[in-house]
Simulated assay, not measured.
Amino acid sequence: MEDSESSSNAIAKPKAPPRKKKRFRKKNAGEDEEYIENKNVAKTINQRFKSKNVKKQDETPMFEVRNGKAVVKNSGNHEMTVSRTLDYHMNKLFQWEEQADAIESAYTCALCHISGFKRELFGPYYTMHNPAKYWPTFLAKKPNVKKPVKIELWLHGTCALWAPNLHLVGSQLSNLDPQMDIFWSQTCSICRKSGASVVVQNKKNTFVHYPCAQSKGYKLDEHTLLCNS
């Protein structure tokens, strides 16, 4: 028994491995300079996009009493986001984007055939038209296709204003595709060219261009009907 106890005591318990000391890597001067430079750049960007009217504490909506009534006061960040979104949509509404897939047309009014070098034209506007039905050869060469294609158009402000069923929405003219097909199928009773849009009063199927009506001294009423002077 003594021998067994002595042998068991002779077996030493395994010692726990010593803990490794944490080594702290020294930062060289180059890393410190890079950190400082990145921090300065980030600070500059934050200052550039930070609104002057937004306070640090103004981050959440809250109720505020005004003239004895409780109203919701939105956070400064919310007001800034709404303002930027509104500006973006307004700028997009009043700007036009050039469409490379459209057929380039002559700098001529698509209604009255008068060149833009004589009077200012507005545009370009873009419409889809089927060459098989009618194509304005005075604007661009007729494409050899049987499907609708996109073409750019330029218009005088007065010609577009007095053309029926055209409405200016932002920088675009609504309902332009079907109306241009109708106008191009109508011949001016004065110059005998296509694109006539103004209806002659009391004369069935008689149309004229706005500049042609002016040259003849005709007067236009608010319903875009031509009245003889």
Results as ranks from 00 to 15, higher is better:
Ala102Cys: 13
Gly116Lys: 01
Val149Trp: 00
Pro131His: 07
Ser115Ala: 06
Asn130Arg: 10
Asn144Pro: 03
Thr137Gly: 09
Lys146Phe: 10
Gly116Ala: 00
Gly116Gln: 06
Pro131Glu: 07
Asn144Met: 03
Pro143Ala: 08
Trp135His: 02
Leu111Gln: 02
Asp101Gly: 05
Phe122His: 10
Cys109Ser: 01
Met128Arg: 14
Thr137Lys: 15
Phe117Gly: 04
Glu120Trp: 06
Ala106Pro: 02
Lys150Arg: 14
Pro148Cys: 02
Pro143Trp: 03
Gly116Thr: 02
Lys141Pro: 04
Ile103Val: 13
Asn130Lys: 09
Lys150Leu: 07
Val149Glu: 13
Ser105Arg: 06
Ala100Asp: 05
Ala106His: 05
Gly123Arg: 08
Thr137Ala: 13
Lys141Tyr: 07
Glu104Phe: 10
Lys133Cys: 00
Thr137Tyr: 03
His129Phe: 11
Leu139Asn: 04
Leu139Trp: 10
Lys142His: 01
Ile114Phe: 07
Asn144Gln: 10
Pro143Val: 05
Pro148Ala: 14
His113Asp: 08
Leu139Cys: 00
Ala132Cys: 10
His113Ala: 00
Ala102Met: 03
Tyr107Gly: 00
Tyr134Gly: 08
Cys112Phe: 03
Ala140Phe: 05
Leu121Asn: 04
His129Cys: 13
Ala106Met: 11
Arg119Trp: 14
Met128Pro: 01
Thr127Gly: 08
Ala140Glu: 05
Tyr126Ala: 04
Cys112Tyr: 10
Ile114Gln: 10
Ala110Gln: 01
Lys133Asp: 10
Lys118Thr: 14
Val149Ala: 10
Leu139Ser: 04
Glu104His: 11
Ala100Thr: 04
Ala132Asp: 12
Pro148Asn: 11
Glu98His: 12
Val149Thr: 10
Phe117Lys: 12
Glu98Arg: 11
Lys142Glu: 12
Glu104Ile: 14
Asn130Val: 01
